[in-house]
Design a protein around this nucleic acid. Sequence first.
RNA 1: GCCACCGUAGCUCAGUGGUAGAGCGCACCCUUGGUAAGGGUGAGGUCGCGGGUUCAAUCCCCGCUGGUGGCUCCA
Length: 740
Amino acid sequence: MPKITLPDGSIKEFPNPVTGLEVAASIGQRLAKDALGVRVDDELRDLSFLIEKDAIVTPKNRDGTVNKDALFLMRHSAAHVMAEAIQDVLGNDVLLAYGPPTDTGFFYDMFVPEGKKFSSDHFEKINARMAEIIKEDRKFTRYEVSSAEGLPKLKSEGNKYKLDNAEKALGMPSSVYRGTKSASEAAPTPPLGHSTTSPLSFYATGNPGKDWEDLCRGPHVPSTARIGAARVMSLASAYWHGDENSDRLTRVYGTAFGSQAELDAYLNQLDEAKKRDHRVIGKQQHLFVIDEMVGQGLILWTPNGSVIRRELQAFIGAELRKQGYTEVFTPHIGGLDLYKTSGHFPYYQESQFPPIIERNTLEELCSSGCSCAEMVNRVAGVSARLAAGINERTKSTTIAADRVMADDKLIEGFMLKPMNCPHHARIFASSAHSYRDMPVRLAEFGTVYRWEQSGELNGMTRVRGFTQDDAHLFCTEDQVDNEVQGCLSLVKTIFATLGMKEYRVRVGLRDPDSAKYIGTKESWDKAEASCIAAAKSLGVQFSQEAGEAAFYGPKIDFVVKDVIGREWQLGTVQIDYQMALRFDLSYIGPDNTPHRPVVIHRAPFGSMERFCGVLIEHFAGNFPLWLSPEQVRVLPISDKTNDYANEVVNLLKARGLRATLDSSNDRIQGKIKAAADEKVPYLAVVGPRDAEGRQVSVRVRGVQKDAGALGLNEFVEALAAEYSGRGATTLAQRFGVELG
RNA sequence: GCCACCGUAGCUCAGUGGUAGAGCGCACCCUUGGUAAGGGUGAGGUCGCGGGUUCAAUCCCCGCUGGUGGCUCCA
């Protein structure tokens, strides 16, 4: 007699085991009609799942995109529909392997026989077939068989992938998978409750034995028509078990939504994202270039992009001065010893460019017959000891520059800097500090270099050389909270000015099971507490994530949401109790003895490259006036008005505005079209009438008509005010419109 | 890094085993036009780089290079 606790907390008793559908029906007709599945004791199940004992149940409404369970069920089911459609279109010799739902839809990995072509040309047919299957409204019918029955059945079907899946589900070692992944990965230990006698489940899309079916764990929606709308999206390749030495499979991506309208909205969003792609807009507006001769992942800032970067840097620079920062400059490389001391060399080796070895050392090594491989080993040998965190002479676990062992000096050289902090630490160390001078805040737009895998590179957002809006705050322990607050308020100001209204904060903490962190437990506890307190005080959504800390300390990351709802990881604030120790930094306290400062690393934008990339997408290339490479374009009606047009341009320029003249012999319509395409914020149309009245006819970006005329002086001053106020008030507002 | 696809004019992209195409942009000419493309003429190419097959390769094959997408798991 199952007692079932419903979502509202009420308890219903049933005389016999009941299905999810019956539970739903007991609540209401409408619910029984709309329900797709059921959550029993937090497990998502078929609506037909038989609940035999007491349970907590959440009948699922089909209430659209917000309901993750509903989407999961539809997508999991849509994967079956797509697989059936693909086999209908391409033939049954396409072998299915693995098809789970994902965050944005689902995929199905399948083996396409040699010689068989599968391309996006087939999508139309597949989509049409999927629509038919959905319309046929066939029931998803689950049936269970014993392993003794199921395994031979799968064997006879000749699909080793499914057989492998079944063996895995049963916790058996694989009889077919022969990849290079270890046996434990290929066949994990079975979780509790499974044994070789556990039944396997199949789902037929319709009647077992008659309609299409697939080995599947479920759950599914009751029938195909309950999948609102689905379609195939794209093709990619994948390996069986993600093992590159194993079979190469074709991965077919698809997605499903509760309704055609939601699917369309999703497709529109993809389109919109495509239109905003910073790589595309960057090309159109000549903002930056990546040149293969210069190198992968290295950004060339062209004049237009440089305007944006310079404006941003000036903006941050002004905020930093208000907060008492001082500016420094440091070189792009640093000696190996610097990084041995900081710990970057041993800990970050994989993600750094290889060391730059001094010519003399290189020649010596070469002439003594040292091969390249040996050279790498000898450099790495040094780091291996350091990575172990043990200095052999002192047996201490911290390493200072003076304790680098004598034979470590054999290889001398430099590294392209992966971070600015070691340089800044040496600046701090270059003079004596009193507690009265603390905190010392050193800021630099410092360019750093990191070795990203080529496949990870992406436009401006994933690069190998980038400029951090970096600063290191050397402070006393008492000052940490206050300084972290200062960093957060800076970030708030910046996001507010740029109209990035929604953002959240992620606090990265230690992974309790990992040994990669340096420093004592006490210092970590303290630093983590500061980060959490600061994040709380910010008053925005925040999460804590174990294992996301840097090796030297915990951190606070900023994730902004752009106007179309995508999230971007940007800047970071990190508390570091280790660097001062490693570099033996100190300040003299009121007690006249040396004390260790705490170091706060912070880069609110992260990097200028990434941030500009995000801004391009955020604004879709429609930059606010203060960031626009070209702020205003003067368009003479004909070259009879060129003199006046020139005078207008010169006045604007004299006021510090980035103004240009369109002196082409296009008609005014053509000039406006060109300026609109290039997303110039303001246009000043000038003809004989304007020249005579010493005025300009204004056009505002995003507004499809003449905004009205304005006296020349008033126009120039309004633009100057909008520029210096970074858009706090706009010229567009004066005309009752928005700058789009 | 690995896999798939791609690389043709400044940009977007057609195309072909036999002397290379369009639109936009650019230059020049005509036009002097009041708010999202007036008309004409012209310049512009080592068809990513290297090798191979072929009488002949931008096209077919191999290697490299660069770009784009993808790199999952209780089915």
